[in-house]
Structure formats: structure tokens, C-alpha cells
Design a protein around this nucleic acid. Structure first.
Length: 677
DNA sequence: ACCGAACTAAACATCG
DNA sequence: TCGATGTTTAGTTCGG
């Protein structure tokens, strides 16, 4: 009777309202609470898009560079001043330092702004594929290094400045005011320059669509820089600054930090490039002599999208690919500037990667701490994007994983995947563990994405972690049925599948089993087929797809697609691929309206529509009666595992997917009789 | 605020 | 009679 005897579920007895309550509390870890917390987190995480994080990182990098540049100039000016007039620094001059330092220090700090939450968001936004994550990691490291270097440099600068000031002080005091003014002017110039450069870069970023302007962040530094300078001064200074800037630009390295100690890791990057095709590879393309080849072979160049040159800061428009190539070779030839830009790009990514790694670690630690026994962090990360049906295959006999996401196109909305799921799917299994907490029941059901991939990929996670799967019952049931060799299961088998696949369902049997039955009866997509041995349940895919028809209108669709990214890895992968093809860098905030995205959406839409039509054709939506099922004689004998013996397995089975799936049966046992009601 | 979808609970029916 | 299986209804929650 009660498999769950062990657990609190025991309370199943003759259900009574009380029972329900108790079950909820005990068994489910106060689901409401946990669920809530999780939700919040997930929701929060969503705010920042990966792209945004990248943007931020990029911005930061630029700031660092500017900073460096500024520092260099500062040094120069200091020297100049020293040379020009022995007079200079008066005690009060020191006061200026702070003002100068402020911006600098601010800039220095910025890097940390990205961290935890944003990175987590990135993590959660399953948009990132393993490869991408790798790339990010590497780049993050590079960025970190650079940051350190900058800091050192900054320190040195400060020291020097200090020394100079001290010397000057001793040198003698003269017209303090004049000195002050001179000093101020000098500093202001520097500030202006920095500011201008920042603005310029920001503009560039904006042009590229890389930056969505985050008032808070950009505005702040800029603002602080401008403070204290009156318009008149600005005007005048501007010119000077401009000149300076140009000089710098001509020098190339100045702003771009070619001297960066971190030589580009071509090998690594190339690796990625090879792995991930075009994504991220653009930064290298330049350096590779194979550029042209690349172009020709793949007409879609990462640096060329929708008639626009995607080179950072460049927005040239071209009619055809050839002209673009020319432009690329001419304007973005292998020179210091281009190289520097490449490095910048790489560093940005590396920085992000580093950050990502850190946060991942943290997350893992957190998860480990919270889940401990049950979910041991599995050291072996799996490529989620692969949609490894392999995993599942173990469970399900031959056919194993059903047509993963394929059939069920996103169009149909039934399977709600919560944000959490997103996280899971995209991130490595490890990370999955992290996302603990019972998910909200149906977060975004709307976008009924194929859950299969998610389930498959995170199978282990769900199997071991008592986390409520972010899918609707209907989706889960469907999945279970589709996974079966004959695409049909008896109710009990469905139960077994649930308990086997999800640790979460090893509790509160009464509740979820009731829900399962309810769903089976309620949804037309589940067809009951009389079998010799009884009745089995099958899935009417068309009906399933029909559920919650979505409008395929442009924006909505796009939105869905975007959302879907988080959901089905398969789709996600496809989407990413599309992005790559369309040369849509992930970090380009895909504003729904953007042409690029739309084009992409169209691409995907076609696929989706295909499926949709499928469903629509059916057109018997309204038919109240259940589908015509009965007759099917597929009669599947139900060779299935009749095991129901009970066996209170510890939920905590650390064992990741042990090679033998049969073990899972243990769970089956439980359910076998469970306590339903 | 409203609506639809999903979830939960539970009553009730049927069958072996 | 009992438990499993199905069906149905009602209330709640949540997101659009």
C-alpha cells in the first residue's frame, strides 16, 4: 500500500482534507515556500539577459582600457607639467587627486559589478551552450588577468603621481591658484578625454546593438566625470581632447591595449570556433589567414549580418557580400587596431568565462550544501545541447527517448517550463543540480516547449534531486508515454515512470497520482486505449500540439522563441545555430523588433508552423468527446515492468544514473502501490 | 480586473 | 469489500 510509508507520504490513508494538508507540509517540504523562493530567484535572474551581461562586461573592459589610456595620459601630462613649470603642485593640488582617482577607481571597480547575479543570470539563461560557456570561461580568465594588470598599473601610476606631487611640493610654492587651475585643467582634460572615449565606445556598442544602454551604469561614470566642468571649459577642452584622442587612435595601441600581456590564445579560441562554428570565432577570423576561405565557404560570415558589418564599432552597410569582404579587408585589415579589437573581444569573453566559472562553483557549492546527500554534484559535465538521448535510452528500452523535441514544436504551449528548467537545460548537469527547489508548477506554460530534451538532459538531476520538474503533468505524462517502446503506458506504468524519473514524485503519491489521473482524463491529448489486459494510455500528438494554440504573430512568436531558448535544449541549440547562421551574436540584445531577430524568427517560424499546421489540421478541437480512440488495437501487451514490490528506496540515491536502469524499478515498487489516495 | 491554464483536492463511478 | 482506475467538479494560483 504505501510505498511511501517511509516518507511522510504515509499519510495517504483514506484521503481526507487533512491528509492533503499534512502531506503538503511534510512531504513536500512546504512546497509553497520553496516554490516561492525558487520562483523569485528565477524571476530575478531572468532580468538580465546573457547578452546584457556580455554587454556589461564589454563595457567594463572598455572602461578599463580607457582608464589605462587615461592613466598613461595622465602620466604624460604630469611629466609635461613638471617640465613646463617647476611650479606646480601645491599642497592643495592634492585635492585634485581624489577627483581624479574617483573615476579611475570607479572604473576599476566596475568589473565586479557583473558578478554573481548577472552571471547567474547568464547561467540560468540556458541560452549558452557548453561551448559557449567554455569560451566565456577562457575569456573571463583573460579579462581577470588584464584587470589585475590594470590594477597594478594603476597603483604604480598613483605612486608615481604621489612622488611627483611630493617633489613638486618641495620644489616651491608659487601662485597656487594658477597652479591649481593648470592642474585642474589638466585633469579635466583627462577626464574629458576619458569621457569622450567612453561615450564613443558606448556609441559604438550601441550601434552594434551590443549595448542597450543601461542608464544606471553608463550614465554614472560619465556623469561623475563631467562633474565640475562647466560648458565653456568643456567646449574648449573638447577640442583638445579630440585631438588627443585621435592621436591615440593613430597609435592604435593606446586605447586598445595591444600590449596586453595576455597573448591571444588562438589555439583555444580556434577550438571553439571549430566547435561552435561561427559563434565567437569572429574575433579570430581576422587573425586567421583563412578568412577569405571562410567567407567563401560559408557565405554567412560572423562579421557580416543583414548587410551590415558587424565588426565592433563598425556599422558599414553593404549590398553584397563581396563588397563587405572588401571592406573587411580594407577597413579591418590586420593592423594594430584590428588586433587590439580582437583582443578586447577575447578578453571580454574571457572575463565572462571566468566569472561564470566562479559563479558556477559557487552555485555548485550552494547546491551541494543544500542538497547534499541526495544530489552530489556530478563531476562529469555533460553536453546538454546534445540532447543526449543516450541517457534516456537506458531507461526506456529500445526506443528510448522519443522524438525529443522534434515533434512537439514549440508552437504548442503546453509544457510549461519554468525558468529554472531553462537553467537546467542549458547549463551543464552540474549546474542543474544547483537549481534546486521545487519549481513553480507551471511557470511559463505558455510556451509549451518540448520538454523532452530538458528531461533527458537533466534526467539525472531530476532523478536524484527532489526538485519539482518544471513541466506540467501533461507534458510529463506525454513524455513518459512517448518514451515507452510502444508509446503507450498503463496508468500504473505512468506512475512508475514518474517515480523513476523524478525524485520529486517519490513523495506525495496521492497528490500527484491524482493529478496524473486527472490530467489523463482531462486532456484530449491522452487517449485511453482498451487493451486486452486492460487499458493503456497513448498520446494524441496532434491534440497535444493543439493545446493552447498560440498565435504565430510576429513579435509574439519571437518572444516565444526567445523564451523557448531557455527551454528546450534542442530548440535552443537550433536557435543558437540559427543565430550563428544569421550571425546574430548572442550578446546582441535581441530586441524583439530587431530585424535580425525577426529574420531568425521567421526561420524558426517556418519550422514551427509546420508543426502547427499539423495540429491545426486536426481541427476537432471543439469536439467534446474524447478522441476516437478505442479501437486501437495496438494492444500492447504490457510487458512492462510489473514490478511493484515496494522498496523504499532512499530518495537520495546518489548514484547518478547508474548504468543499469532497472534499478530504478526500485522506485517503481514504491509507487506500485503507493498510497494513492 | 479578467481570463485561461494548470494544479490540487475530492467526490463519484466502474471494474476486477 | 477494497483498491485501482477514470471521470468530473470546484477552488486556487499564476501569468498574460
Amino acid at each position: 500500500m504505501m510505498q511511501e510509508s517511509g516518507t511522510e507520504a504515509t499519510s495517504n490513508g483514506p484521503a481526507s482534507q487533512n491528509r492533503a494538508a499534512s502531506v503538503e507540509d511534510g512531504a513536500r517540504n512546504a512546497r509553497p515556500n520553496s516554490a516561492t523562493s525558487v520562483d523569485v530567484t528565477a524571476a530575478d535572474l531572468i532580468h538580465l539577459q546573457p547578452q546584457q551581461a556580455l554587454q556589461v562586461a564589454r563595457q567594463i573592459l572598455l572602461q578599463q582600457q580607457h582608464q589605462q589610456q587615461q592613466q598613461q595620459q595622465q602620466q604624460q601630462q604630469q611629466q609635461l607639467q613638471l617640465q613646463q613649470g617647476t611650479d606646480l603642485k601645491s599642497p592643495k593640488d592634492n585635492e585634485n587627486q581624489p577627483s581624479l582617482q574617483v573615476p579611475v577607481s570607479v572604473a576599476m571597480m566596475t568589473p565586479q559589478v557583473i558578478t554573481p547575479q548577472q552571471m547567474q543570470q547568464i547561467l540560468q539563461q540556458q541560452v549558452l551552450s557548453p561551448q559557449q560557456l567554455q569560451v566565456l570561461l577562457q575569456q573571463q580568465q583573460a579579462l581577470m588577468l588584464q584587470q589585475q594588470q590594470l590594477q597594478e598599473f594603476y597603483k604604480k601610476q598613483q605612486e608615481q603621481l604621489h612622488l611627483q606631487l611630493l617633489q613638486q611640493q618641495h620644489a616651491g610654492k608659487q601662485s597656487k591658484e594658477q597652479q591649481q587651475q593648470a592642474q585642474q585643467l589638466a585633469f579635466q582634460q583627462q577626464l574629458m578625454q576619458v569621457q569622450q572615449l567612453q561615450q564613443q565606445h558606448l556609441l559604438n556598442l550601441q550601434r552594434q546593438g551590443l549595448l542597450t544602454i543601461q542608464p544606471g551604469q553608463t550614465a554614472l561614470p560619465l556623469h561623475s566625470l563631467t562633474q565640475g566642468i562647466n560648458p565653456a571649459e568643456l567646449q574648449q577642452l573638447w577640442k583638445e581632447v579630440t585631438n588627443l584622442k585621435e592621436e591615440n587612435n593613430s597609435n592604435g595601441r593606446r586605447g586598445l591595449d595591444l600590449s596586453s600581456p595576455q597573448p591571444p590564445k588562438k589555439p583555444l579560441l580556434n577550438q571553439h570556433a571549430s566547435t561552435n562554428g561561427q559563434y565567437m570565432s569572429h574575433s579570430l577570423k581576422r587573425e586567421g589567414s583563412t578568412l577569405d576561405d571562410y567567407h567563401h565557404s560559408h557565405h554567412s560570415h560572423p562579421l557580416y549580418g543583414h548587410g551590415v558589418c558587424k565588426w565592433p564599432g563598425c556599422e558599414a552597410v553593404f549590398e553584397d557580400f563581396q563588397s563587405f569582404l572588401k571592406h573587411l579587408n580594407n577597413e579591418h585589415a590586420l593592423d594594430d587596431r584590428s588586433t587590439a579589437q580582437c583582443r578586447v573581444q577575447m578578453q571580454v569573453v574571457q572575463q565572462l568565462e571566468l566569472q561564470l566559472a566562479k559563479d558556477k562553483e559557487r552555485l555548485q557549492a550552494m547546491m551541494t550544501h543544500l542538497h547534499v546527500k541526495s544530489t552530489e554534484p556530478k563531476p562529469t559535465p555533460q553536453p546538454l545541447n546534445l540532447v543526449s538521448s543516450v541517457t534516456l535510452s537506458k531507461t526506456a528500452p529500445p526506443e528510448a527517448s522519443p522524438p525529443l523535441s522534434l515533434p512537439q514544436t514549440p508552437t504548442t504551449p503546453t509544457a510549461p517550463l519554468t525558468p529554472l528548467s531553462q537553467a537546467h537545460s542549458v547549463i551543464t548537469p552540474n549546474s542543474l543540480h544547483h537549481s534546486v527547489g521545487p519549481m513553480r508548477r507551471r511557470y511559463s506554460d505558455k510556451y509549451n516547449m518540448p520538454i523532452s530534451p530538458d528531461i533527458v538532459q537533466n534526467k539525472e538531476f531530476y532523478m536524484n534531486a527532489e526538485v519539482r520538474p518544471p513541466f506540467t503533468y501533461a507534458s510529463l505524462i506525454r513524455q513518459g508515454i512517448l518514451e515507452s517502446p510502444e508509446k503507450q503506458l498503463t496508468l500504473n506504468e505512468i506512475y512508475n515512470w514518474f517515480t523513476r524519473m523524478f525524485a520529486y514524485f517519490r513523495r506525495n503519491a496521492a497528490t500527484w497520482k491524482n493529478a496524473v489521473r486527472h490530467n489523463l482524463s482531462l486532456h484530449k491529448c491522452f487517449v485511453r486505449v482498451e487493451n486486452v489486459k486492460g487499458a493503456v494510455w497513448t498520446v494524441d500528438e496532434l491534440e497535444f500540439q493543439k493545446r493552447r494554440p498560440q498565435k504565430i504573430t510576429g513579435p509574439a512568436l519571437v518572444k516565444n522563441i526567445q523564451t523557448s531558448l531557455g527551454y528546450g535544449p534542442a530548440l535552443s541549440a537550433a536557435f543558437q545555430a540559427s543565430m550563428a547562421e544569421n550571425n546574430i551574436p548572442l550578446y546582441t540584445t535581441a530586441s524583439i523588433g530587431s530585424p535580425t531577430l525577426n529574420s531568425l524568427a521567421n526561420a524558426i517560424r517556418e519550422e514551427m508552423i509546420g508543426a502547427m499546421d499539423h495540429g491545426n489540421s486536426n481541427g476537432s478541437d471543439s469536439s467534446p468527446g474524447r478522441s476516437p480512440l478505442p479501437a486501437m488495437h495496438h494492444i500492447k501487451e504490457e510487458p512492462l515492468d510489473p514490478e511493484d514490490h515496494e522498496g523504499p528506496l532512499s530518495l537520495v540515491t546518489t548514484a547518478n544514473h547508474s548504468p543499469d536502469f532497472d534499478h530504478h524499478r526500485d522506485y517503481d515498487d514504491d509507487q506500485g502501490h503507493d498510497d494513492m489516495l
